[in-house]
Simulated scan of single mutants.
Amino acid sequence: MSTISPQHALIYIMVTMSAVDRAMSDNELQEIGNIVKTLPIFSDFSEEKLIPVARECASILQEDGGLDAVFGLAKDALPHHLRETGYAVAVEVASADMSVKAEELRLLQMLREALGVDKLTAAAIERGARARHMTE
């Protein structure tokens, strides 16, 4: 049995992605809020819990081995059918600034491996995000 809910796991993933470059941008934070407001998985999640859950994640990330702990909690909390959703929300947050940095790419690779998302599925998710964020 998991110690966090699937919704918490998805928020942990998004916060981790936003924080990987040590700068949580306004665009990334806005994207996290939009995802929580619009994805069906969050339909019974109170938006007022977003900040406390994000702080929980930040606290875990501050500890030694925090990244591994967050990934482990997320994997345990997400049923197999929601692991692609976990990867997809990470990609959306990474894409929010219209560019994906090297540390974000590395974290996506680590997340993909931790959640067991195959490369073809990951590529499709990434391509979809790229298409949604095109400006010209």
Rank of each mutant, 00 (worst) to 15 (best):
M14N: 01
V15W: 01
V15M: 15
M17G: 03
S18R: 03
S18T: 05
V20H: 01
D21W: 13
D21K: 15
R22K: 10
A23H: 13
M24Q: 07
M24W: 01
M24A: 12
S25R: 10
S25N: 09
L29N: 14
L29A: 06
Q30L: 14
Q30Y: 14
E31M: 15
E31H: 06
I32G: 01
I32N: 01
G33H: 12
V36N: 05
T38P: 03
T38K: 15
T38S: 13
I41G: 03
S43E: 13
F45C: 14
E47I: 14
K49P: 00
K49S: 07
L50T: 04
I51W: 08
I51R: 15
P52N: 09
P52Q: 06
A54R: 06
A54L: 09
A54F: 02
E56G: 08
E56K: 14
Q62R: 14
E63N: 10
D64L: 10
G65V: 11
G65R: 13
G66F: 07
V70A: 00
F71R: 05
F71A: 00
G72S: 14
L73N: 02
A74W: 05
K75P: 04
D76S: 15
A77S: 14
P79K: 13
H80V: 06
L82F: 10
E84L: 10
E84K: 11
T85K: 11
T85W: 01
G86F: 00
V89N: 07
V89K: 00
A90S: 09
V91Y: 00
E92I: 05
E92H: 08
E92W: 02
S95N: 14
A96P: 07
M98Y: 12
M98D: 04
S99E: 10
V100M: 13
K101C: 00
K101H: 03
A102C: 04
A102D: 13
E103D: 11
E103P: 08
R106C: 03
R106P: 02
L107N: 02
L107F: 10
L108H: 02
L108V: 06
Q109A: 14
M110F: 03
L111H: 04
R112I: 02
E113M: 09
L115N: 03
L115F: 13
L115Q: 09
G116L: 08
V117E: 01
D118V: 04
L120I: 10
T121E: 09
A122L: 06
A123M: 10
A124Q: 15
A124R: 15
A124V: 12
I125L: 08
I125G: 01
E126T: 11
G128N: 12
A129I: 10
R130D: 03
R130N: 08
R130S: 02
R132S: 09
